[in-house]
């Protein structure tokens, strides 16, 4: 009996072996290599040391880049949540049919076009002669064009739009699991709509909020194209910094150090969020 179970488990392992091997070679090995590189010393000296990390954390500029990146990720996540939640709610309240299909299509549309294309579309919108500026100028709300490109807020706007599906899809999934009778029961017990939302809908969709936040945060802090193009080289975030160190300056140990710091930051945030999630998981499993 036990032997049989073992055999069965063994067969399961055999099935995942190709994927395991693939991940080992192309995922785990590069990360190990990167961490080792980050511990090597500048110049050709042998041996490992923390010197690169000391350099990274010793310089205010580096810390500012790290902070700006984390702050960018946080703001993008918040914008996606605030704009995405009502949209996901609307989607889940729409009865299956044509309207719902159109809504689904609009929500996943950003995933179907390349990030580069979408980023350039944002240049058209945010530029000096862009859509926003010409509209505001022609309405005489402003006298000279606002600077929207190459600003932190411009990057947030573009990134939020691009990452939005990563927030909305988990939200929709968690709302689909929500029994509509719970909200009806809450109302019948005398709760007005806002109380029903905060006591029932919001806590029960928290797993979706957490999953969406994890995705948007990690995708934002590691995104390269949008911050570089919209930021126009004036703003520095971790991915751009890594690129500069590695490709322009050939400072591989320092690039590896920045990468490792970014990796650990993302892991820390994801761990924090998922520990929040495990608080709610017990009652949302179906």
């Amino acid at each position: 009996m036990q032997a049989k179970a073992l055999l069965k488990a063994g067969r399961g392992w055999a099935l995942v072996f190709p994927l395991t091997l693939f991940l080992m070679i192309f995922y785990l090995a590069p990360i190990v290599l990167m961490v080792i590189t980050s511990l090597s010393q500048a110049g050709e000296t042998e041996g490992l040391s923390w010197s690169q990390y000391a350099e990274f954390f010793g310089d205010g500029f580096n810390l500012k880049v790290l902070w700006d990146t984390v702050w960018l990720g946080t703001q993008t996540t918040i914008v996606c949540l605030l704009l995405g939640y009502p949209l996901a709610l609307l989607h889940s309240r729409t009865r299956p049919g044509n309207w719902r299909s159109i809504l689904t299509f609009l929500i996943v549309l950003p995933l179907l076009t390349s990030a580069v294309v979408r980023t350039f579309a944002w240049i058209v919108i945010l530029g000096r002669q862009g859509v926003i500026n010409s509209a505001l100028l022609s309405l005489s709300i402003i006298e000279e064009p606002l600077r929207l490109l190459s600003t932190h807020h411009g990057v947030i706007a573009a990134l939020s739009q691009i990452q939005m599906p990563l927030m909305i899809l988990p939200l929709i999934a968690s709302m689909a699991r929500l029994d509509p009778n719970l909200e009806a029961a809450s109302a019948s017990l005398g709760s007005p709509a806002w109380r029903t939302f905060w006591r029932i809908t919001f806590p029960l969709t928290l797993p979706g909020i957490i999953a969406g936040s994890m995705l948007v945060f990690s995708a934002s802090v590691s995104s390269f194209v949008t911050p570089s193009v919209i930021g126009g080289g004036r703003l520095m975030f971790m991915p751009m910094y890594i690129y500069q160190q590695a490709v322009s300056l050939f400072n591989y140990p320092f690039a590896a150090t920045i990468s490792t710091v970014l990796l650990i930051t993302v892991l820390a945030v994801v761990t924090l969020l998922s520990s929040l999630g495990s608080l709610t998981r017990s009652y949302t499993r179906t």
């Binding site: 029994d179 009806a184 029961a185 109302a187 949302t284």
Partner: peptide, 19 residues
């Protein structure tokens, strides 16, 4: 509206708040 009607309802699936 439902929340002002003071009519109690017990659903077929009970709809207890799971959290």
């Amino acid at each position: 509206p439902t929340h002002k009607r003071n009519v109690g309802i017990v659903f077929q699936n009970y709809a207890l708040f799971p959290h």
